[in-house]
Design a protein around this nucleic acid. Structure first.
Lengths: 152, 152
DNA sequence: CCGGTGTCAATGCAGTTGCATCTATATAGA
DNA sequence: TCTATATAGATGCAACTGCATTGACACCGG
């Protein structure tokens, strides 16, 4: 099954659903945030990683690894987050090129308010539609589509 | 399970995988098209719908329904496609506000060349990683996440 | 110690998206 | 018929993205 160049109908269908459903769900979640006058999902992703990282913070390149954002995207996103006071850039790194990004109290608070809305979206859009068993199956199948192919 | 406002861990995990995997796959497919100097996926989506529609073409608002693109997005995308000679706008509608969009020969040819690359991406990224049975399961689960909730 | 190469992050520029609005036409209702 | 409202599609403007490049520092080899 490994060197085919033409996708099977089943593959096409699964691909199409994946594309369509993921776009719809993102749109729904973004709309919910907008309706609450909260920042977009991308901000959440970064704030989430930084909150998990704790006081030590993260280097921008670590955020890139974790979030899949492009380098220039992180660079500008962090500039916006900093302008909003949600993160701070610490020049103290022992690497003169870099910096460490740390979430601020306001950043944590914003993340919390976003999660109230975002989490509800996830519960409604996914949690309420599939049983836990089906969710597990879905996660497992999606896990096998990751790149690089997961070693799990 | 319908009115919870906090997502279960299983729901969060499935959501996270869905977000991450779909982004990765889109990126891969886009990269493959770029590597072949072909237009982006969005063009394919529109050309595909128009090719299916045949000589009768489609109204822009029909494309919006089918593709999930925003109205202004379709408007400008069609302008670019027209500028490239891939579609033509027919003012002949019996509705003076509207127009009909029809794919051109060049448009069909471009779609064909895009499919050669795009289809291979689908085969590699999805078809080669899951059996047909698993693909069916995945499609079914994703189908249950559609909005509005499918009546299937 | 020094030059060459590699890595971290920022940025100029062009293209695209999102929002709100606008024009034009259609349709419903008094 | 005439006005009010609704629908189809385009567009000005601001924000964002993608690409390529730059600037700053790190590190390796001689």
């Amino acid at each position: 099954m490994t060197e085919k160049t033409n996708p099977s109908p089943a593959a096409i269908k699964a691909w199409a659903r994946l594309m369509r459903v993921s776009r719809q769900l993102v749109e729904r979640a973004e709309d919910a945030l907008k309706d609450s006058s909260l920042p977009p999902l991308a901000w959440y992703d970064v704030l989430h990683e930084l909150a998990e990282a704790g006081e030590g913070g993260l280097r921008p390149f670590q955020l890139i690894e974790r979030t899949l954002f492009a380098q220039y995207n992180i660079s500008r996103l962090l500039a916006r987050l900093e302008a909003d006071g949600l993160v701070e850039k610490l020049r103290v790194a022992d690497d003169g090129r870099g910096q460490t990004i740390r979430i601020t109290g306001k950043g944590r608070e914003t993340r919390r308010r976003m999660w109230a809305v975002y989490g509800r979206s996830i519960a409604e859009l996914v949690g309420a539609r599939l049983s836990n068993d089906d969710l597990e199956i879905l996660s497992a199948l999606l896990g096998r589509l990751r790149h690089p192919a997961a070693l799990e």
